[in-house]
Write a protein that binds this DNA or RNA. Structure first.
Lengths: 187, 187
DNA sequence: CATTGACATGTTAAAATCTAGATGTCAATG
DNA sequence: CATTGACATCTAGATTTTAACATGTCAATG
């Protein structure tokens, strides 16, 4: 049950309402790390509050309830972070589809790979834009915040995916379809 | 419910028993693409059989039941493969922990990153060994099978993870701990 | 001032998944 | 020939997750 710790982790950064957290999941976490719907988030917040790991620190308009992590919550989050499992079990439908690519005709596989190359290029461009915006405003020579390090991992991952899709596309079947233009790394 | 399609995909490659499928999940799928326990696999196989997407083609010793995909199953698998979702939702506890790295002290984060670098180096070495063994036996100049393409994705992903962990480790806090030796790409 | 859309929190029933077993077969080993 | 370990299937109960709704508030817009 990683959802608890995902919520604790987000609340450790700053207090937030169920609505805020739902939007964070939708905007960033869900594409890279974890996904959860509001129908799961709200009950889990209540449970966390019942367990004393978070508490409501403010109630605002429209019934808004702002949660903050408690000291017990901090301790639990730390405990979890410092005790990773031996093997991480993965559920990634994208990679699953890669593994099952033999189930379609080579031509179709080529089409799918071409789509992967295009999608990853788009994701890469978007992430890179965010990163560059950040780097422009950040003071030079300063230590990078962890969020910037994580973003770097995203950029590198998408670049790898893109390169691979391009490479695999060229190797999979016959010629004919023209691939999407390849995106290269920044200088 | 991707489990159905994971099973269909594996059975499309070759007939197998629930036991065979469970082992395939344990040995390869679970680390990269999807994980499922036998307590989920056996009922799902029954359901697939009830739906006419697979059928028992052989019963062997120790009650072994070998399943094969049916034509209806092939059609369903193809339909699924050719209709990917707009966005892939991800559940990856490893990446989640990366996102939450701010929750621990810089020194602890460095230790964790160091561990990531070591683990990814090990995984990379293992995968590379398999790939090299395959490449040595494969006829040169032949078209690569899709499984080789997927393995290549694995190799590149782990190399990226390793490089990043090394890079992030150097940037995260102060000096002191000596990192694991860095693994570089093959020539 | 009516409408719209973002804000905001929930519930319920069904489906998927996990934990933790139970049960039995067969081949190889000492 | 007793033991061990891999082979092999299966279930029950609890937990997690999803899909699909249900309800209401407030700010901005025309």
């Amino acid at each position: 049950m990683s959802l608890r710790h995902a919520l604790l982790g987000l609340l450790a950064e700053e207090p937030a309402s169920g609505y805020d957290l739902t939007r964070k999941f939708e905007r960033v976490l869900q594409r890279y790390a974890w996904h959860a719907k509001n129908s799961q988030i709200y009950p889990e917040l209540k449970q966390l509050a019942a367990d004393g790991l978070v508490s409501i620190i403010e109630t605002g308009p429209r019934g808004r309830q702002t949660y903050a992590i408690t000291e017990a919550g901090q301790a639990e989050l730390r405990r979890w972070m410092l005790n990773p499992p031996d093997v991480f079990l993965v559920r990634n439908e994208f990679v699953l589809r890669l593994f099952l690519l033999t189930a379609v005709e080579p031509d179709e596989a080529r089409t799918l790979l071409s789509q992967v190359a295009a999608d990853s290029a788009a994701a890469l461009a978007e992430l890179r834009e965010q990163v560059e915006k950040f780097d422009a405003t950040a003071a030079p020579g300063t230590t990078l915040p962890i969020s910037r390090l994580v973003a770097e991992y995203g950029v590198r991952s998408f670049q790898t995916l893109h390169d691979w899709a391009f490479w695999a596309h060229e190797r999979i079947g016959q010629v004919g379809t023209d691939p999407h233009p390849r995106v290269t790394a920044d200088p």
